[in-house]
């Protein structure tokens, strides 16, 4: 049920926007380069070349690794590896507040982030700030669960994995509107 709503909203948003860009795929004749020349430089990328860096995760879950995590474990990891900068409950700072459950507060995951997969992707690639890229996938799932639970986005005890994480519906998604401005006199 949750998953269905999520899918519809996403595809409607993205389709309506992408349609503005449909003159694809015409090579640009500008810049004095013959529009069809192919130079064949570099070398073919092997699966190993790609796999060493391909860590991105999409809202539909593409890119999520195996493994799972729960908030209870995430809380312990957070205390060890994150609390020094974000506070024990994620709001005491000194760096970004990570928990917010109503729109009057500072923008944070609970009231501003439109997709739960982004929490996983960002923590895995960029945190902890002083030791980025050192967390295991299990740790990232656990930390994601801890933060989503603290933001009251998921029910206590929810297990997050490659199937359940993309199905999480974020409260802020409904606030997101695509930029459809294309210049001209209107101020928006």
């Amino acid at each position: 049920m949750m998953k269905t709503i999520f899918k519809i909203t996403t595809s409607v948003l993205l389709l309506s926007w992408a349609s503005g860009f449909r003159s694809f795929p015409k090579p640009s004749p500008a810049w004095g380069i013959a529009s069809d020349t192919i130079f064949n430089l570099g070398r073919p990328a092997t699966p190993a070349d790609i796999n060493r860096w391909d860590i991105d995760v999409r809202p539909d879950g593409k890119g999520l690794p195996k493994g799972s995590g729960m908030a209870r474990k995430g809380k312990t990891i957070f205390a060890q590896k994150c609390a020094a900068c974000h506070g024990v409950t994620g709001v005491e700072g000194p760096n970004d507040k990570l928990v917010s459950t109503d729109s009057s507060q500072v923008k944070a995951i609970g009231n501003y982030w439109p997709y739960a997969t982004t929490v996983f992707d960002y923590i895995r690639r960029a945190m902890p700030f002083n030791q980025p890229g050192t967390l295991t996938d299990e740790e990232v799932y656990s930390l994601t669960a801890f933060l989503l639970e603290a933001n009251q986005v998921i029910k206590p005890g929810t297990e997050l994995n490659a199937q359940t994480l993309p199905a999480v519906r974020m409260p802020a998604l409904k606030k997101y509107i695509l930029d459809d401005r294309t210049g001209g006199p209107i101020i928006r």
Partner: peptide
């Protein structure tokens, strides 16, 4: 991909509580 830098950051509040 809706990365952190195109959701949590580099988005702006607009009318009616919307986020552009």
């Amino acid at each position: 991909y809706l990365t952190r830098e195109e959701t949590s950051k580099y988005t702006e509040p607009v009318k009616d509580g919307k986020i552009r």
